[in-house]
Design a binder for these strands. Structure first.
Lengths: 248, 248
DNA sequence: TGTCGGCTGTGATTGTATTCACAGTAGCCC
DNA sequence: GGGCTACTGTGAATACAATCACAGCCGACA
């Protein structure tokens, strides 16, 4: 729902005659989780793991785990299971995070600064190489080791740092124009924290991260659960036809 | 994929014999977007809107929009479309955000402070009423108007503020124990920013927000797109069977 | 007041994700 | 070496989400 491509997509034509498998975004999202857990397992000294064990740890069904992995080839040893280290490495290669890649940050407000000091990015192969803002107060300053450039300079700076991914944490004004420029400068992936939808040209991808929307979903779930438990909400609980007459 | 309930769920038995409709989480997520756009439209003075217009604005198909709304009853006027104001209000009621509700924040680190100063929550009906941390430096201080309590005091403080939703932005250590306590204290919805999976009892819900995971998805998408465009990656591009022999 | 255009709400259909269930087999034990 | 166990990988089946397509209706306009 949040990606610019809703559906599965081809993973490239195979040189062999094998049919091009299609991988869904949800599968990719789960791969990411698998890898995280596998790394913990590796640190704990585990060498092999079975699908039902790993599935239990990440909270999916064993069948789904096997299916996800099978999208990319044959990973497991029938009797011993999956090699923890190899599989972690393999998923990294699939995700493209086996080598660290540079990321640009747009908007050095509260959220931007929090992201700059977030260690999780480095740990998983992403390095915020440069920050951008339009505020003259901020331009030229160094935040957590990263210099802040003026947004107008992005066409010069992005190639300099070989950046192909960007994080948007700026003001909503002019966001689409900014996005257009970023894409034109060679960025292919955009993680958008600004609660404003942007569109990107073909070949680029956006992930929206509207945290308030997640709170709204939780609010709905908690509410519907109350109703489910037998208590009837007097005023328009979910499931009730709350719209009586909207014809104005 | 990130909620504790993967599937659709009943929305409560209807008093009439009408079958209990099931609403998927994805529908709820879209409702949230609809409402956001409807509010902008309302500010711009729009009174009625047709499904294809609104659908175009939020980037879904008109059929899907109508289907989403129909899950909750009959909203529209056949000839004039949907009443912008009424529909916005109605979705708020469905989501449970028609009245402001209090939220608790756990962890006043960089991210926690960014969330405290984020205006988007208030705008959409969520008020961070209290913050918690274990750091004696932080306990007792006031951040953006909100006092920081010691995490040990949550059982006292949460009922005091009538809190039923929580945001986790703390250290990963002991996160599950913290979550258990929070749920026991009456919280039904948890938004988890910590990159560590937690489980909750029945009747509670978690939404995971692993931002690095989103970057990984983007990395994969950008990469697979390169392959798609004809360029063959020499080393294990997505779609290639990257796992040769994992039998150790 | 009658006719017509175009919209909503929804049954039917299609497409996709997940689960089931099992064939085939690697490793282990004797 | 042979037999047994239980795991993977995958075709088949199921469940679910999105789309199609149209009946029925509302309001506009003559």
């Amino acid at each position: 729902m949040s990606s610019s491509r809703q559906r599965g997509f081809g993973t490239g034509d195979q040189s062999e005659g094998r049919p091009a498998k299609r991988v869904s975004l949800q599968t990719v999202g789960r791969l990411s989780v698998y890898r995280k857990v596998l790394e913990e397992l590796y640190r704990d000294g585990a060498e092999f793991i079975h699908s039902h064990q790993l599935a239990g740890l990440v909270g999916v069904s064993p069948a789904q785990l096997r299916r996800d992995l099978a999208s990319f080839g044959s990973f497991g040893n029938i009797a011993r299971g999956y090699n923890v280290y190899q599989m972690s490495r393999t998923i990294s290669r699939i995700l493209g995070t086996d080598e660290s890649q540079n990321v640009a940050l747009f908007g050095v407000g509260d959220l931007g600064r929090a992201l700059l000091s977030y260690r999780g990015f480095e740990e998983r192969g992403f390095h915020i190489a440069a920050a951008f803002d339009v505020d003259p107060e901020k331009v030229g300053r160094v935040y957590a080791g990263r210099r802040c450039y003026h947004t107008d300079k992005l066409e010069e700076v992005l190639p300099e740092f070989d950046v192909h991914m960007a994080i948007l944490a700026s003001r909503p004004e002019g966001l689409q124009l900014l996005t257009d420029r970023i894409c034109a400068a060679g960025v292919q992936g955009i993680l958008n924290f600004v609660p404003k939808r942007v569109t990107v040209p073909a070949g680029c991808f956006v992930e929206e991260t509207d945290i308030t929307s997640k709170l709204e979903m939780l609010s709905f779930l908690a509410r519907s659960d109350q109703v489910h438990d037998g208590e009837e909400l007097e005023s328009a609980g979910p499931g009730e036809p709350v719209a009586q007459d909207m014809t104005g």
